[in-house]
């Protein structure tokens, strides 16, 4: 199989370039894209990418595979390879540090903006803050996000305004805390989001839903945030 991989070493390259590499895929096996990267790295140690758990939990190896963002470790070749060719690029829209490694500073700056931690101004109970099963159920589909950035870097609004639009990953987490029955900062959280960029730059094109490797739905969460803003503001 031919793999075309994005290469860029700021110390030696003036501009990024694509390297074509022939990779021998063991017959009868459907390798993950990360396995292919490992095979390539065993022959060329200079190829750089992030990886850690290799089972879709840590979110390190988000890459663009044949034009589609996803986690290399849980994406089988049979899902992405077309005409025996695989094109690997870094996640789009973020600055490239080297090869497939991107600078996630902007992504995490947006995540930091939504204050991703429980805020409660009531006195702490003796044991713990309890939730009913129904209240806990509201967090399903939200807390599972692993912050791999596949969604935000598939979003044109995030490409255009990465410093102003929170992005689908951050907004999914914003809604996770807005819908948490133990959080008492709902009004302040919503007030922070009521500007023309943070939430309302979402055009609902659902690229985020399409690429999320965990099957989450940031567009729905953004819709809920807009609804909450509407209820609070009217």
């Amino acid at each position: 199989m031919q793999v075309s991989i994005y290469r860029y070493n700021p110390d030696t390259d003036e501009a990024p370039w694509m390297q074509d590499v022939d990779v021998d895929i063991p017959a009868g096996r459907d390798l993950m894209v990360l396995d292919v990267l490992e095979l390539m790295k065993s022959k060329d140690a200079s190829i750089s990418y992030r990886r850690s758990c290799r089972e879709g939990v840590c979110g390190s190896d988000g890459v663009n595979m044949n034009g589609r963002n996803g986690l290399a470790c849980i994406t089988p070749l049979s899902e992405v390879v077309k005409k025996d060719r695989l094109v690997l690029r870094p996640l789009p829209g973020l600055p490239v540090i080297r090869d497939l490694v991107v600078d996630m500073t902007q992504f995490f700056r947006q995540y930091e903006k939504i204050q991703p931690y429980l805020q409660n101004d009531k006195p702490a109970p003796a044991t713990e803050r309890l939730q009913s099963p129904e209240e806990r159920e509201k967090l399903d589909g939200l807390y599972e996000c692993i912050l791999c950035a596949c969604c935000s870097t598939a979003c044109p609004s995030f490409w255009w305004n990465p410093d102003k639009f929170i992005g689908p990953a951050g907004l999914l987490q914003a809604y996770r805390f807005l819908s948490d029955s133990r959080d008492t900062a709902t009004a302040a959280r919503l007030a922070d989001l009521d500007d023309p960029f943070s939430v309302f730059r979402c055009r609902g094109i659902m690229n985020c839903v399409s690429v999320c490797p965990k099957g989450l739905n940031p567009t729905r969460a953004i819709g809920h945030i807009k609804h909450m803003l509407l209820q609070q503001g009217t």
Partner: peptide
């Protein structure tokens, strides 16, 4: 909160 002087109402909502 992102402020912008040229949007119609300054408020996204």
């Amino acid at each position: 909160m992102v402020t912008n002087a040229t949007s119609l109402t300054r408020s996204g909502l």
